[in-house]
Write a protein that binds this DNA or RNA. Structure first.
Lengths: 221, 221
DNA sequence: CCACGTTTGAAACAATTGTTTATAACCAGG
DNA sequence: CCTGGTTATAAACAATTGTTTCAAACGTGG
């Protein structure tokens, strides 16, 4: 029934095609023909291509934010006011991300979509995500702030984005990188492997010594 | 003269438009009209849109690889056979990247283009870059290998890409992130500032402790 | 000055895009 | 049964895309 439903058939097909070809490079005709659905169905059910893209994201992000909020609730309850250790916070986020595909498609697709959203020029997508799902991120960063009181606010901001870049970049480009890695080293790596490898790196990065202060150059005030 | 030359006018306009809107989202008509050049000029001088894109990259990457190779030559000469320290290698790479805009446009545009190239689905662009400019990267990673003998090869491979992600992600999304950072914290941050902030983070990440070995899960051999 | 290869110009091309329209099929509730 | 709103279908739409064509303009070597 869910499989035969036109709406979910469109979403299922669209998310895969978007992930492997990008948004602009995926036409509605490609989606509808592969989904065995009439072309007009997209505009009928979603209104426009743009809305379809957002719907694809919502289907991933809604379960994720719910889980993540719940996990953070648990954490705060357990630590009741005390600062939650950095490792716990990162661990919780990783666990929440890894749990998403239980309700949806592969985690690989999800990360690829996220990567596309952030690299999208102009950034209507990033703005949409920020607007509808920014609150979890805000809550998370605030907890990170309490876990790393020694870091200046600006420094923490940038380091968080450094790490966000590591995660999104490697996980969204996983297929291409895996090909290289498999050829050069034996290993067949999974998303979970990468998350495991990311953990100590992220912790070390957040706890790295502060950079040398900016040198006063001639062209600056 | 260089300014009046049709070819360079096309390239100058294209790289800016590509950087701020993406490749698929930038039409040849937008480029040629903004460059005050006839529409057919692109196909006449470059053959196709695809070739134009590659030409835009070549104009950045050619000077970069030349400088970078030269800088690595200097380093190897100075250390004559001994392993070059990690910090030196990173410092050299950063300096080479920062020097590029001296010959070309802004560094911001360069990083944005790199980010787009890597996030491009399918990845013909990534393949083109790898094919024509992969040798410098290979040389660099070999030196990194000698500088971090304690790291398993696969681990170093992934950590390098983690860091590549940090750099490309933050620097290519600089404009959007800067807006947030400026609002929340005072600072007006430049690319050079980010590179300075990246240094200790990258070093710490590369030297982080090894991850816990992969747990033997049920579905794995 | 003329002739010839190079570059520019305006127009047309064929293909593809997202979206809309009008009609048909469906499928419940009276 | 049939009637009314919901969904599916095929066709057309208008706009935009990259590319090609062919004639005009250019500029340089004879």
């Amino acid at each position: 029934m869910a499989q035969n439903d036109t709406v979910t058939r469109i979403l299922d097909t669209a998310e895969v095609l978007f992930a492997e070809r990008g948004f602009a490079e995926t036409s509605l005709r490609t989606i509808t023909s592969k989904a065995k659905v009439n072309l007009a169905a997209v505009n009928y059910h979603f209104g426009s291509k743009k809305s379809l893209i957002q719907a694809v994201f919502a289907r991933y992000l809604d379960p994720f934010t719910e889980r993540f909020h719940g996990a953070l609730d648990d954490l705060e309850r357990r630590y009741r006011g005390q600062a939650i250790p950095l490792e716990e916070l990162l661990e919780t986020m990783a666990r929440s991300v890894l749990e998403v595909p239980a309700e949806r498609n592969s985690l690989k697709v999800f990360m690829r979509l996220l990567g596309l959203a952030y690299s999208q020029a102009q950034g209507h997508l990033r703005r949409y995500i920020q607007q509808d799902y920014g609150s979890v991120f805000t809550r998370f960063t605030e907890l990170i702030r309490q876990a790393t009181p020694e870091l200046p606010d600006a420094e923490r901001f940038w380091r968080l984005h450094f790490m966000l870049g590591s995660v999104i970049f490697t996980l969204s480009g996983l297929d291409a990188l895996r090909d290289i890695a498999e050829k050069d080293y034996d290993e067949h790596v999974t998303v979970r492997d990468l998350v495991r490898r990311l953990r100590p790196v992220v912790v070390a990065a957040m706890q790295a010594p502060l950079p040398a202060p900016a040198p006063a150059t001639a062209q600056e005030a």
